[in-house]
Design a protein around this nucleic acid. Structure first.
Lengths: 228, 228
DNA sequence: TCTGTTTAAATTGTTAACAATTTATGTTAC
DNA sequence: GTAACATAAATTGTTAACAATTTAAACAGA
């Protein structure tokens, strides 16, 4: 990846969204962003066009750019798309994972365990997303990996918008069982567990009662960069 | 859809790619595009950023924008992603298609029949893609529909780049059988036939021997706008 | 106090000019 | 004739200024 101002800006916004530091509806002003990232407005504009193409930002003519607020229908479409994509990803993983991949998965489970004991929700959200993206990388299909990256970000927006009944989105237990199926090379079992896991997350979302949106744009900058 | 210069440009480029009027590797010069579409370079730049996010254009710093040339690995990833996504789409179609939807499908088959007798390859390509996109629309999952739109365009690039042994990409026969399964509400049958159809298309691609790339940018404008 | 209007500020949209880089052209030496 | 180099043209990258629109604020009237 190159290091142009556009790329930096896009990556920061995506990270902030997936960490739920940026919430649905937040306005992304051009001047504010160009100040925050010390670049000119042309760069900001291009970056916003990219984010709009990723469907995490809405561009409203003469009004500006806003973090998108997915509807309930859209949310259900996102989850169905995730089930479709992650079903194929997990199949690839079971077939293609080597020893080093399995070591990575086990290391990740340990990290999630450690984070759980800290009760740090933002960190937990980040780690949970990282687990799914790790599976996507091990699956070695760059197209599916890219789409899942988009969908997990939109999932973050959805959960941030409608809230989740459970504190921890992904129970680490379910992640552990998925890894076990991978180790056992149990394709059907792994697929079933991933599907169940995703339905579980979707089922916990409290549609109807929208959480208070927006938040300060300054949250676009992370408190720390340590990632699992 | 709004009618900003960016949108117009993006739509035209996407159409040209899916019709194989624009081939892999073609340079998309800023001046040339701003002349062709009578807009300034700022608009062109934003449009190119959007197209790059859709992964149909590569942006190379200081060199410009080029229609992307998918590798063989990427091509296989695209087809696997299509199988994953279209499997869920066809399931939705079988469950959700009403009488009017089935009428649309039958009308489309008739159109494809008519086009086949004309031996008009560009038109056939366009109609073939339209069939898959029609299924996506009937499936009523906007997320999957959007991803399939991207993937069918990339499929056009792939076929244009590596060539296909058969003249007609999608044999209309296979499309007709898929529709029959939908009418019969045969979920498993429909899924199996879509999967077989996609594997058939992929199998016909002649990897290894790249077709001559590039072509004149002027082909970005269509000869006619009649679409099935 | 509330409503509607007018004015001012802030934000987005547009354009042009200039700088930096790459590509093409042409020249010279061998 | 080819290769290397120098020059010129074309293309991309950057910046600033200005116009148009929207949002916020001030104000007057009921």
């Amino acid at each position: 990846m190159s290091d142009t101002p556009e790329t930096v800006l896009v990556e920061h916004v995506l990270d902030a969204i997936s960490d739920q530091r940026l919430r649905a509806g937040t306005k992304l002003g051009e001047q504010a962003l160009s100040d925050l990232f010390s670049c000119n407005r042309a760069h900001v504009r291009r970056a916003l066009a990219t984010l709009a193409a990723y469907q995490v930002v809405d561009l409203i003519p003469n009004r500006g750019a806003f973090v998108s607020t997915p509807s309930e229908d859209e949310a259900r479409d996102v989850f169905q798309a995730r089930r479709a994509i992650e079903a194929t990803i997990i199949r690839n993983v079971v077939r293609r994972a080597d020893d080093s991949d399995i070591a990575s998965l086990r290391a990740h489970l340990a990290t999630e365990d450690a984070i759980r004991s800290q009760n740090d929700r933002p960190k937990a959200i980040r780690a949970s997303r990282a687990f799914h993206m790790l599976l996507a990388r091990i699956g070695r299909n760059s197209v599916l990996e890219h789409y899942l990256a988009e969908l997990t970000m939109r999932t973050s927006l959805i959960i941030g918008l409608y809230g989740s009944k459970t504190a921890s989105l992904c129970s680490d237990d379910e992640h552990a069982r998925i890894v076990q199926s991978i180790v056992d090379r149990d394709e059907a079992g792994a697929q079933e567990r991933v599907d169940h896991h995703l339905r579980h997350i979707e089922g916990e979302i409290a549609f109807g009662e929208e959480a208070p949106r927006v938040g300060p744009l300054s949250m676009i900058f992370p408190p720390d960069r340590a990632t699992g």
